[in-house]
Design a protein around this nucleic acid. Structure first.
Lengths: 269, 269
DNA sequence: CACCGTTGTATCTATGCCGATACAACGACG
DNA sequence: CGTCGTTGTATCGGCATAGATACAACGGTG
């Protein structure tokens, strides 16, 4: 493990950590902090002091980053004030990109998710159909993103084949809730996965609520076999009001196949 | 930056790397590979050899991980075959969790996204309303889902205030496309953000297509000021057919506020 | 009881990153 | 022309992690 989390000032608060990788060089939170400090101080020297880091190291780190990501800091020595450094536009783009990645990661850690287990029924390009306790669902399998990994792990990678046991991950923020009575014409939308169920629980936040919907098992599966299946949906409190949701209400939920991730399941023995 | 739509141009280079963090200990791809190798070999010694790593280090690494994540490997010395090790159930859960995180990360790197820039108009709990070139949009900011904070980097991290410049990130997999003529009753769904536009481009994959929709600027904004705004939507090729989409067609797009992330924008000078 | 291969444990060394320090080069400004 | 604070560059030691090696402990099996 070569990452630079060494110093005690590590986040450790989030449940995950992300880093961009390009040209074999990782861009992580420490690098982001460095660039931001350069932006604030107007010089690499000032940034290093503000962060309590070595100035020489900060400079070489910036050079390492620039070898992989292109010009990031416009440095100028001599002149007014002895010189100084400014962020290049591409550095701001990189920071924004990193922030978005971090935001997505923080979201996946904090937003509820529903994980169903099933077996792959069919594969058609990037989409696979999975048989789950609540019926057939379709979603994207790994091929969509290559293997964003370092030193090849297990080799389980992205490959998914018919018959494999997989996890079906559905982010609560991808699930839309519809009034069961006022069902949307399925031909008018691009959201394909659709289930009926009843509201089992509403966890109200300030302006966002997590609604859990108990879904009936598909034909041929006994409730006793699979237990109750709850799908979480994250919707605004306003929407809860507008739809007049309360525990026990019948609802129809819907989410896009392209917002559904299929992940190989670690073999159980 | 006058280009308000983000990384459609982003080459497939933008890879990321993820790690789980618990108790100050990171669980990354290297650790995942180790656990999987233990599962395959039936012993830590065999796993270390298969990976070309030091056996002693592998053992101490597993102990370090177990201090943070609980029992992961059931080790037994002596006996048949001299002993051996098996993965504990919690280790399989951890691997599954890591795989899901990795899948989400890989997806954010490979799925198109739309990034709009705007200023925060109002904040109400976890939801904020942002004024963008295409009108007001609402989305989740910072600590979505009541998570504490991401701690570490930058310092400007999660906090968003009224008047701040922010990026509005909309994953293409969160956008649903509706037939403009056959508009959905807005009261029947929990998807709030809604825009009208015309299909500008369809990038057909094998079974999944990226559709770009050109959206008209909101009232009071000139097209010449903001340029064309394209929103990307990832939908199945089947849905493209079903909706009969072709460039120039008027469509209505819609996505949930809870699937929209607000990220502070790095200051430009 | 000896054998076997594994789990534990300890120690030494190699490596890589970081901080610390020192010094040269630079160029506007007074 | 000297001052100033910065950017470059080089070197040293500290520290954490990994590999290499060695040896004891363990407990079925023959």
């Amino acid at each position: 493990m070569r990452d630079s989390t060494g110093s005690g000032a590590d986040p450790a608060a989030g449940r995950g950590r992300a880093a961009l990788i390009e040209g074999g060089v990782e861009f992580d939170g420490r690098d982001a902090a460095l660039l931001r400090a350069v932006d604030a101080a107007g010089s690499v020297a000032g940034a290093a002091e503000a962060l309590g880091r070595s100035r020489a190291r900060a400079l070489t780190r910036i050079e390492t980053l620039e070898e992989a990501y292109g010009t990031l800091v416009e440095r100028r020595r001599g002149g007014e004030g002895g010189g100084g450094s400014r962020l290049a536009p591409s550095a701001r783009d990189l920071l924004d990109r990193y922030d978005r990645l971090q935001a997505v990661l923080a979201a996946t850690a904090s937003v509820p998710e529903t994980v169903l287990r099933g077996t792959v029924e069919a594969i058609d390009g990037e989409i696979a159909v999975v048989d789950t306790p609540v019926g057939e669902l379709s979603g994207l399998h790994g091929g969509a993103g290559g293997e964003g990994n370092d030193g090849g792990d297990g080799g389980d990678g992205a490959a998914v084949a018919v018959g494999d046991a997989v996890q079906v991950r559905i982010g609560a923020d991808a699930v839309t809730v519809n009034d069961a009575a006022n069902a949307v014409d399925p031909d008018a939308t691009s959201a394909r996965n659709r289930l009926d169920g009843r509201v089992s629980e509403i966890d109200s936040g300030e302006t966002v609520s997590t609604v859990r919907i108990e879904v009936e098992p598909a034909d041929g599966k006994e409730t006793s076999d699979v237990g109750a299946v709850d799908v979480a949906a994250l919707i605004t409190a306003e929407s809860v009001d507008r739809l007049g949701l309360a525990p026990g209400d019948p609802v129809s939920i819907r989410w896009k196949a392209t917002a559904t991730r299929l992940v190989a399941q670690t073999g159980r023995r």
